[in-house]
Design a protein around this nucleic acid. Structure first.
Lengths: 347, 347
DNA sequence: AAAGGAATTGGAAGCGCTTCCAATTTGTCC
DNA sequence: GGACAAATTGGAAGCGCTTCCAATTCCTTT
């Protein structure tokens, strides 16, 4: 029932001025190491946590972070991906006393650059998060950086990674892990259904998967690739084509779960048993993967964690007074979820 | 690029003191109607919006709202339902300058009451949202109310509705709407798969559905009811039973989408055509409903909206200085999503 | 060893708002 | 019509923090 300690309590406890505590808290310069340590000790002793509201008020900052995602007619509007990203980002914002403004913009909107710049100029947001496919739009990234807004891109490609920070799961590694899993199950004739052309994550997943196959020294024709577009429908139609050929593969790996769900459906319709006749796997571990039969093997993409990290990275940079994030990619750990849709035919 | 107007700008513009503006903004007493109107006009003219951070700081309130959901082993941890509720609530909180603390508690935890009370006493939250099944735990509701914490329950039953406010979709009306849709398609032999025993929403859906059937003056045996438990698995097994009987129904209505997805699977396995041989419908409109074949007819439950309303209601009450919400149920509009899984056999 | 500068620390003003309390106006009663 | 209470309004003190600027201390120089 006690009141929370304030910065003044910390100051009194460590015998310095409030200003000095503030400096320590904000990684400010000009504080002796000894003093800094003493203040930190007091912070710990009193279990002090800054009041973000007071900080924002005094600092005059809006504390606003913009999360931009693309509106695409193809994709369902409440997609698991976007919700997860937003929820993760929101939680992190709440933790840090920031606020999140999430906005959907069409990649075809001619005014899209202006809209984004407006967020920076008029709404004065202190940082921005771009999700795919905006996270790979070099021109847009350039504009934002030039406007002096700390920017982090979700699952960006190489070009953007060289310009600013990016977070995401290591899709190539995930593809590789899936490759290992599939090969372990004894499959030697595999079809991989890729995502839409130019989609970074899908491309990386394939690259990793292929690398695994190549390293296993399988014949070149062990792996076939088809192009899908991430939708359930495309999973259905491509699987119809693939599974009705003479030389049917024994495993069908799809670059996301929705297509895998479609493939599963087609397999059922063709009277195939899963995984005995055909193993199926996806990527992302969206809720669908447990609402299909058999439960789908997939790679869990920690999308909320990714959203949260994006916010944290921006907050760190801002606290350090930087208006640009260190270029490079930060990988968030993924997990292979081996479920019944790929259970081994060998055991 | 202009700075946002402050309360002092409004005060100057309307020729009163800052204090008076504050009173108007907080619905305080002792303000002449004429003055109130003048201030409101200035607020509108300047497009003024209070700075929630400053308000919290000065008011000394934590601005914290607790969202409690139950941790259940059966349910998937990232369920669409919980995420949606949380996201909606978070957005509303952001809008209102509040913060949300969402917490999962096991309904079996012997310390669950203490944990909840702790949130009120120690964390000093200004309001609480209980989601099912906690929203129907009369003892818990009583405790929270007695602790003087404004409480709103999601989709509560009658007993709780008499004690505090509740929001949700009108499940009985949704059931009725689904009944109308199913009857319109010409079905006269229907099986309804109910949710777990005691589940308020599932029960209401059935009640509404049954009322529709009764009003249509169909014979008593037109509607059969089976008990499911909301899981995909239970949809599969119950459908196996129901669909392999001699007198197979022509429509299978499930109290949620997950069970409907299971039923759909079973129907495929049994070689039935959907919707020709058997129509299938669900409730909720979760993403699965478009990741199955054929796309599932269902009732869209605006779960984000519900979360947002819950927060708004608490904020309203708190602003008005009340520590208890008006008992009663607030219904959020739903929409029937008629898709291919119930397309008419008549047309 | 004295002066100049850099590094470190503290004082104090204010961010935009609520709220206690005092000041002013209005209404009421005999 | 004057005294008193009630209603209405305004002044001013903070809420917990950042930040400008002045004060102090510590090193370097020459």
């Amino acid at each position: 029932m006690k009141k929370r300690p304030t910065i003044d309590d910390v100051a009194a406890h460590s015998g310095v001025a409030r200003t000095t505590v503030s400096r320590v808290l904000n990684n400010g310069p000009n504080v002796r190491a000894e003093v800094r340590a003493r203040v930190m000790a007091s912070v710990a002793a009193l279990n002090y946590r800054v009041n973000p509201q007071a900080r924002m008020l005094a600092g005059g900052s809006t504390g606003l972070i913009a999360l931009i995602h693309a509106f695409e007619l193809d994709a369902e509007p409440n997609s698991y991906y976007h919700s997860g990203l937003e929820l993760g980002a929101m939680r992190a914002c709440a933790e840090l006393g920031l606020s999140l403004h999430s906005r959907t913009i069409s990649p075809l909107d001619p005014a899209r650059y202006d809209k984004i710049l407006d967020l920076i100029t008029r709404m004065r947001c202190i940082g921005m998060i771009l999700s795919p496919p905006f996270s790979d739009d070099v021109a847009m990234v350039q504009q934002v950086i030039r406007a002096g807004c700390p920017l982090i891109c979700i699952s960006a490609g190489d070009a953007v990674q060289a310009m600013t920070a990016s977070v995401g799961m290591d899709d190539a590694a995930a593809g590789y892990a899936m490759g290992q899993h599939i090969l372990e199950q004894g499959h030697r004739a595999i079809t991989f259904i890729d995502g839409p052309e130019g989609h970074i994550s899908a491309g990386q997943r394939l690259i990793g998967f292929r690398r695994c196959v190549v390293e296993a020294a399988l014949p070149a024709d062990a792996l076939h690739v088809e192009r899908g577009n991430f939708t359930f429908r495309s999973g259905i139609t491509i699987a119809e084509d693939v599974l009705s050929r003479d030389a049917r593969p024994s495993a069908l790996v799809c670059a996301n779960d929705d297509m895998a769900a479609g493939a599963l459906l087609t397999a059922h319709r063709l009277g195939l048993n899963i995984p005995e006749d055909i193993a199926v796997a996806g990527f992302d571990d969206t809720p669908v993967s447990e609402i299909v039969w058999p439960p789908l093997s997939t790679v869990h993409q920690p999308i909320r964690r990714i959203g949260a990290r994006a916010v944290e990275r921006i907050a760190e940079a801002v606290n350090r007074g930087r208006d640009t994030l260190e270029p490079g990619f930060e990988a968030i750990a993924f997990h292979l979820m081996a479920r019944a849709s790929t259970a081994s035919k060998l055991h």
